[in-house]
Each structure stands twice: as structure tokens, then as C-alpha cells.
Design a binder for these strands. Structure first.
Lengths: 263, 263
DNA sequence: TTTTAAATTTCGATA
DNA sequence: TATCGAAGTTTAAAA
């Protein structure tokens, strides 16, 4: 039997079923009216209400309210979930260390419980990621600029990794930062930090602010499908460049399409 | 009846129950062997395996494998979920626009299904957030530095928001960036960006790199519980300062403790 | 609606 | 194990 369902189980039955699920490495789903407390990186409390609780064999624990993508409380995998009856009510406790934290759920009324002996060997295959954008640029540097030549991919520097270190048609070095999504101020920051490392023979300590602009012997290029005006201005003000690149690797991006029948 | 459970429902029963749940604004949970396809910001495919599916009345849709905190596929709230039988199998389709994307789940075998008429009026109360850290600093600026005076909180600048704009005992301006967690290079970037705006009478365009270091008439201070060596070096090299601050607002942080009985 | 930054971010790769 | 950066990030707040 892959699934065992209980309707309105009493506290002892809830704890018993939960223990069976944990012991057998099954997934546990509980529909219940409950109270939740979290103590760890921050602390919080959620008063009584109806939620779905999910416990996975890897220690993952989720508390889902009737709305919202994110669980209102949770515990990432790696920890452990335990259960017991306390003051006549079932309690689920999810714990982990590093960081030390805990989520405790006190169940006032359990409407339903499902134990699920799930088997899943499949892994998610994704297309259209930033890694694929990198591949596309590495193979087609001309889409950024005519005559651009990639010298190094993922070059490590003192302050972090540069996506691409390239040289333009005139032999001028170009530091390239690539983003799959609309560029943000933080992305501008990143490029600025990397560019600051490529001053001619100067260390950041010798060049207050670590700043370098076009003309100092190195160019900085932020590649993304779009950017807000503020980001574009920040780039311009600091002698950096924006290159819009929205379409890339279309073949790869569409490779997993049409595997399921369309509606 | 708050919960209705079906065990091994046939395709028509799955679709019927799902439609009832969507119509009544109930939460739907399905244990099933299924295949998943996503098309939107990227695209992806997940082969057959056992998963838990959750549909919420706000359009949220989640596909959970037996491990991991994050759903392998999902749709945030705001869209809609529909269902129908296709080629003899139940199919769940979650869609939204802006951005346009869709998750389609083809159910090969449904082990269990639960409809849950959930009512939850409670909201999560949290302590120990960065906002509270700001309050604590605003009320106790001396924990950063003796004689420091806060001039403005959340000051908007040309390139973003400065957490605190302050003045030290000597009257020198201090730009303060606050982080609740260990400081990262991106946090250093943020501070560097803000500090670059406070040069004496110079616009960033007039000061290549927008860089400013101690001595230029403005100080930059990154406040966090800790920072990696690389971050500390980046700060030092650029004339910026690190202030360790781990304990803050203990009273507030502990205010929600002990609401549930300890184990 | 767009922008901006936080998040109990999680997750994966790398040193 | 710590660090660093991506993510279909999501969420909330502000303009």
C-alpha cells in the first residue's frame, strides 16, 4: 500500500502514524488546525488556524497556510522531525543544528493525515539558465560586440569571480558580467568591483575607491536582457557599459518542449 | 466536513474532486506518480516519479519530491489552476501571466487525494528581523561608535537607499549599512556604492570609479554580526569599516518565546 | 506597475 | 566546513 489515509485521527493515532512514516522513510501530510512556533535565526509565532503540514524523510518540514507560495514556517532538509503527545495534543517538532533552530507545531485538531511511501528517481532537467547563457556567449562572443574575443571564463580574482575576461578589437581588456534576468543595482556593484581589479598595475589600496572608468585601460560590460534607468545611469556615470541580450540558445531552451500533450 | 479523502481515485474522480476544490476555495493535496513540465522564465522537464501536489485557492501550485525544501516545480499565487482528463489521464495545469508561465502535471497514477476546506485568519509574528536591528541601532547608536549621531534613516540617494546617514563625534559624515546576517561581498558592494555618493561636491562622473576612502570627508561603516576575511579585506582596502554587532533587541527577540510547551 | 532590497532565503559548487 | 553567487528566487514596501 503506497498511501495510508486517516480521517480525523485522535492524538495517539496521529503520533503513531507519524512515527510509522518517519521510521519507514515515507512522506507525511497532515491537515490540521494548529499553532506554530519557530526559534532559530529569528523567532516567530503563528496563532491557531488551518494548515497543511508536510514532513519529508530527509528532515524537511513545511507548514503551509491556505495562501502563498512560501511555507509560513519550515525546516530545510538535514535535520530531523519527531512527534509526541503533549497535554493531550499531538506535537510535531522539527530540529536541526548549524544553525540551531526548531519549528514546533501543536495540533489542536487533526482533520486528516496521509502517509505516502514515495519513490522518485527522476531529476529535474532545466534549460535557459545563466550557465547556458554563458555557453552561448562563449560560442558567440560577437553578439556582445563585433570582434570581441573571450580570453577566460569564470576567472577568479582577489574579490570574486569574473564571468568573462575578454579583449576587444583594439586589444583593450573587457570585464564582462552576465545576468539572465533584468540587471539590478547589485549586478552593477559586482561589475564595478571586478573592474576595479584590472587597473594598470595599481592595487585597490593605491587607488582610492578602487574605481576605474573607460579610458583607464579596461572596459566593464554588463550583459542582461534589460536594466532599469537607475542601473543604466549608474553604469554610465561610472564609465561602464550595458549590452542588451535577451535571446540566447533558443534551440536549447526549447529542447524539452512538447514532452507533454498541450491543452 | 472539513476534509474529504479519496484513495486511489480513478482519473474522472481526480478531476471531479479537483474541480470541486477549486470551485469551493479549498486546498487540494494529491499523492501521485506523475510527470511535470514547466515553460516560462526557463523551461524544464521532470520524468515520472512519486510526488505530492498542492494547489491553493489563491492559485499557488506546488510539486514536491520526497526530498528538498523547495518544490521541484511551482506556480506562485495570482494565477489559476485547472484540470481535465487527457488521453485517459488526469492533468493539472497551473498558469499565470506577467510573466507568462505554466506548470503542467500529467498524473499516471493517483494514490490519494485530499480536499481541505481550510480557514486561517492568523498572521505570522516575527522577531529578530533586520527592521528590528535598525530600530535597535536608531535607539542605541553608541553600540556602533561612541558619540555617533543618527541623522537620517533609510535615506534615498541617486543610486539606492542608505540604511543610516550619521555623523561621528568629530562631525564627519558616516554612511552605515546594516546586515542581520554575516556580511557578504555584495553587502560590501552596496556600502561602496552608497559611500561613493557622498564625496565633497563631486558627482560620480567627476570622480572616476565613484570611489571615496576615509579622509575624503565621509566614512563608510558595514554593521553585521560577522564577515569573512575576504569581505574584511575588501572593506579595509577601500577605506571602509566593519563593526561587529551580533546581539540586538534581545527583549524583542525573546518576546514570542515559550508560547508553546517545551519538549 | 516597477523598483528596490530583505529573506529563518535555499541550493549548488568550490576550496 | 565555510564561502560565494545563482535562483523560474518570493515577498514586501515604496514610488
Amino acid at each position: 500500500m503506497v498511501v495510508e489515509q486517516l480521517e480525523s485521527p485522535d492524538p495517539d493515532a496521529v503520533v503513531e502514524a507519524a512515527k510509522t512514516a518517519f521510521r519507514n522513510g515515507a512522506m507525511l501530510t497532515v491537515e490540521a488546525e494548529c499553532e506554530v512556533e519557530y526559534e532559530g535565526r529569528t523567532s516567530g509565532y503563528l496563532g491557531p488556524g488551518d494548515r497543511i503540514l508536510v514532513a519529508k524523510p530527509d528532515g524537511t518540514f513545511l507548514v503551509h497556510q491556505p495562501t502563498g507560495h512560501k511555507p509560513v514556517n519550515w525546516m530545510p532538509g538535514g535535520g530531523s522531525v519527531s512527534t509526541r503527545v503533549s497535554e493531550g495534543e499531538p506535537v510535531l517538532l522539527a530540529r536541526r543544528s548549524n544553525p540551531t533552530e526548531r519549528v514546533e507545531v501543536r495540533i489542536h485538531e487533526c482533520y486528516g493525515l496521509t502517509r505516502f511511501d514515495a519513490t522518485d528517481g527522476a531529476t529535474y532537467e532545466e534549460s535557459g539558465t545563466e550557465a547556458e547563457m554563458h555557453e552561448y556567449i562563449a560560442e558567440n562572443p560577437d553578439v556582445l560586440e563585433e570582434g570581441l574575443r573571450i580570453v577566460e571564463h569564470e576567472r577568479e580574482t582577489k574579490y570574486g569571480f569574473v564571468d568573462f575576461y575578454a579583449v576587444d578589437a583594439n586589444g583593450t581588456p573587457v570585464v564582462v558580467e552576465v545576468k539572465r534576468i533584468q540587471a539590478t543595482l547589485n549586478h552593477f556593484d559586482q561589475l564595478q568591483r571586478y573592474v576595479s581589479l584590472y587597473e594598470d598595475g595599481k592595487t585597490p589600496a593605491e587607488s582610492p575607491g578602487g574605481g576605474v572608468t573607460a579610458g583607464d585601460g579596461v572596459r566593464g560590460m554588463l550583459v542582461a536582457p534589460s536594466a532599469s534607468d537607475r542601473v543604466k545611469r549608474a553604469l554610465r556615470d561610472n564609465g561602464l557599459e550595458f549590452v542588451g541580450l535577451s535571446e540566447f540558445g533558443l534551440d536549447a531552451k526549447g529542447s524539452t518542449e512538447a514532452k507533454l500533450t498541450d491543452f
